[in-house]
Amino acid sequence: MAEPRPSLWERIRESSLYRSIYRTRYPDQPRWQSMVILQSLALHLHPVRVPKRATRLTYTWGLGGLSVWLFLILTFTGVFLMFYYVPDVPGAYFSIQNLATSVTFGQFMRNLHRWAAHAMVLLVFMHMTRVFLTGAYKPPREYNWMVGVGLLVLTFLLSFTGYLLPWDQLALWAITVGTNMAGSTPLVGGAIRTALLGGFSVGPATLVRWYTLHVIFLPLALIVGMSIHFWRIRKDGGISTPIYEEEEIGSHVQLAQ
């Protein structure tokens, strides 16, 4: 009796192209469930297995992961906006108007970028609160908590630098208020304010500086910070699990050396 003919999907999976990309079979058995994590660049941020509690929505609320997801959405929509945006006075304003009126999906992408940015500030803040409430900052995770606070500050700065870019009344005066605050730093306030503004008031030089910070420097700084943050989660023993007594320390936390 002849073998049944393989289906198209089976033939694709057996092809040398497919097998050069995905080295594991569909992960429905423990061996392949391990391999799929270990052999994927993106997935290997995760360990192969986690405590069941870590998958409980009511423990983490997924806030850290969703913050990363928002960063990806913001990068994608941000690059789209960069295709059309001109960091020029008053050209910036007209490029935003143009985006809304004559670019396919222009208004939608700008809206998505704006609301995702607000959501990211909110979710990063809530993530910090969750980590605090579960005591997940306690040793050995104290350094990673500090990195996390730094990431919160970077998130604020990214959002704030983006606020100026549309060059409308809302942007100009919000940034005037904000830089005046920074200008009141004791001793060095004047110098900080001048450096932020590229002059004595919000103008073309400010726009170029903040645009550069917004699209290159701060995102790169955030990526570096996030890399340390994720790496240290794993090195510090993964997601926090309950410790009720001294003796338990060490049995639950397996530090990767």
Partner: peptide, 18 residues
């Protein structure tokens, strides 16, 4: 709750839906 479960599919499915 402290028993370890596979990330695929237990965690990844939740992350995808979220």
């Amino acid at each position: 709750e402290l028993r370890r479960v596979f990330v695929w599919p237990n965690l990844l499915s939740i992350e995808l839906i979220g």
